[in-house]
Structure formats: C-alpha cells, structure tokens
Design a protein around this nucleic acid. Structure first.
Length: 301
DNA sequence: AATGCGTGCAACCGCCTAGCT
DNA sequence: TAGCTAGGCGGTTGCACGCAT
C-alpha cells in the first residue's frame, strides 16, 4: 500500500515538448503493427522516450487516421455551441457528436472562438431584451433590431431537438447559427458589418494533410527509415488493430494514409515541389541523417 | 527591419473513475 | 471492501506564428 499515486512514468527519463516527425512515425508504425493495448508499456516497446499518456494523447489528437483535419465548418461550430449549452464543458461528450473531431480540438475552438462569440451575443441580447422591455412598458414607437429578431427566431423554434434546459435565460441557443453569432460579434466590434463570412473550410490555409496527392512514394518501408523491427515487405504489413477490420479496402485506406504521413513527415521524397516547414530545432534533433532538408530548416516534400 | 503583442493550438498536469486483485 | 493501476478527462500552459507598430 504505497502512499499517494505512483507516477505514470519516470519524469526524468521521458522527453517532453513537441513531437518530432520521427517520433510520430515510430508511434504510428508501432500501433499499426501491434495496436495500443497498453499505453504505459507502449513507449518502451516502440522505442520512444515518452510518457504513455503523451503517446496516447498524440495518437488520439493528431495521428489517428480518422482524425478530421482542417478548420471547423460553420455547421460544426453551431453543433458545438448547441451541445455546450446543454452539456457544458464535457468535451469528450461533445466530441462524440462530431466524428473525427477530438475533445482537445473542440475545447480549443471553444476557448479561442466560440466562447467569446456566445458571450458577446448573450451580452447583446441582454441589452436588447432590456431595451425591448422598456419599449413594451412605454408602448411607444416601433422597435426593430437584428438581435431582437435573433431572439425571436431562437425562442420561436425552441421546440427543436435540444433539451429544455438548453437556454441562456429566455434565449434558446439551439437555433442560433454561426452567422448569428458572428453578426453579433461584428456589431460588437464597432458596428463592423460582415456581409459575407468566408467558410472556414474555404480559408486561405490549405490544410497540409488534404493538400497531399495520392501520387506518393510507392515504396513505403519503415524498417529502412527507423530502427524498429518492421516488415520490409509492404505486402506483409498488417492492418492496424485499431480498425477492427480486415477488409482490403480498409487496409488500402490505411496504406494510403500512411503514405500521406510519410510525405507529411518528410521521410520520403517525391517529384512534387510542395514545401512545408517544421520547427527547426525539433526537426534537426530527430531527423538528421535520414531525410532531406535544406539549411533553412525547410523540408522539401 | 526589429520589436512587441495577441492568438491559436499542441501538449502537459493532475484529478477522477472503472476495472482488477 | 480496500487499494492499486491505467485510461480518460478537463484545465492550463507555453511556444510558434502572424500582425501591428
């Protein structure tokens, strides 16, 4: 019966900080071959100087093949707002309603974007409601305001799929769209008008993962790249355990995905000229010796 | 061009809980 | 039943990057 909680790992012997491409590949390769039955023992078996928790987090939040990358769509943002209203900060629960999105990602989006927007909207609606009440009391003039229409729209159709408790005061957020929130935010920012808000998915940031073409290295062979025991023959690679499937389609999908990763991580060269940049220090630390790189810490992919 | 500041996000920390002995 | 372990979760931090000055 030891006192307190035993540390999950020896902090002095594990590496911390951002993951390097080589570490990523080691983790991916190991999980593809062995699955991830025991996170605690995984780092040692995979040859990683990382805490098991760190491996799990990296896999779940970034390396999993089914992780949906790229910006959140307005629809996804709407969903998060609605779900947060009814579930609160239960990020993993919210994530379960958004396939491919992780709790960490959703939490970040909420904290950096959505919370502010909803806060602004709530503030505006409070002001509007107060003004409207004053108007109704005095029974003078005619009151027209965008926020009022938002409130009416939201409350009028409150019989939707959301829980009855899903409301901020009299406002049911289930029917607030991202456009509503953004419009309110824009008004809050010195009445700046946003007539057309570009979709996140159409933003200038080209997601690197999506950008990659299928014309990638056909000779994937991790054993030549990493000092881990893997099959050198591609045909002998096993389908990942996490898929729980053995169909050739799924396997092909995994292979395709791995090729994406190979390129993404700069572990192979293609004829394309697309260039991405990794953080220099990390990249030098792990990749020196088995990938191409120029002196500007830029990997030619 | 250099510097400062704000923002976004990956990763860490520590607590909670389920499962096992 | 109590204690331990590992996984899961939410809060928080710190760094990189972009933009403004």
């Amino acid at each position: 019966m030891g006192k307190g909680r035993a540390p999950c790992c020896d902090k002095s012997k594990v590496k911390k900080g951002p993951w390097t491409p080589a570490e990523d590949l080691k983790l991916i390769s190991f999980i593809q071959k062995n699955g991830h039955g025991n996170w605690r023992s995984l780092p040692k078996q995979a040859g990683l100087l990382r805490c098991g928790k760190s491996c799990r987090l990296r896999w779940i939040n970034y390396l999993r093949p089914d992780v949906k990358r790229g910006n959140f769509t307005p629809e996804e943002e709407d969903t998060i707002i609605k779900l947060h209203d009814s579930l609160g900060n239960r990020w993993s629960k919210i994530a379960s309603y958004l396939p491919g999105r992780t709790d960490n990602e959703i939490k970040n989006v909420w904290n950096t974007h959505l919370k502010k927007r909803v806060g602004i909207l709530k503030k505006e609606i409070m002001i509007t409601t107060t003004t409207q009440e004053a108007f109704e009391t005095n029974n003078k003039g005619q009151y027209i305001d965008v926020a009022t229409s938002l409130t009416e729209e939201a409350t009028a159709s409150a019989a939707g799929s959301c829980s009855p408790t899903s409301s901020y005061g009299s406002l049911n957020l289930c029917n607030l769209s991202t456009e509503h929130v953004r419009a309110a935010e824009a008004r809050d920012n010195q009445d700046q008008v946003i007539n057309e808000i570009p979709s996140d998915s159409a933003g200038a940031d080209i997601d690197f993962w999506d950008m990659l073409d299928t014309d990638l290295s056909p000779d994937l062979d991790y054993s030549k790249v990493l000092d881990i025991n893997l099959h050198s023959d591609q045909s002998q690679l096993q389908a990942p355990h996490y898929t729980h499937e053995s169909s050739s389609d799924k396997y092909d999908e995994c292979q395709k995905w791995l090729r994406y990763l190979e390129i993404e991580l700069g572990l192979t060269q293609t004829s394309t000229t697309t260039t991405t940049t990794y953080t220099g220090a990390n990249y030098y630390e792990c990749c020196d010796g088995f990938t191409s790189q120029d002196q500007n810490n830029t990997m030619q992919v």
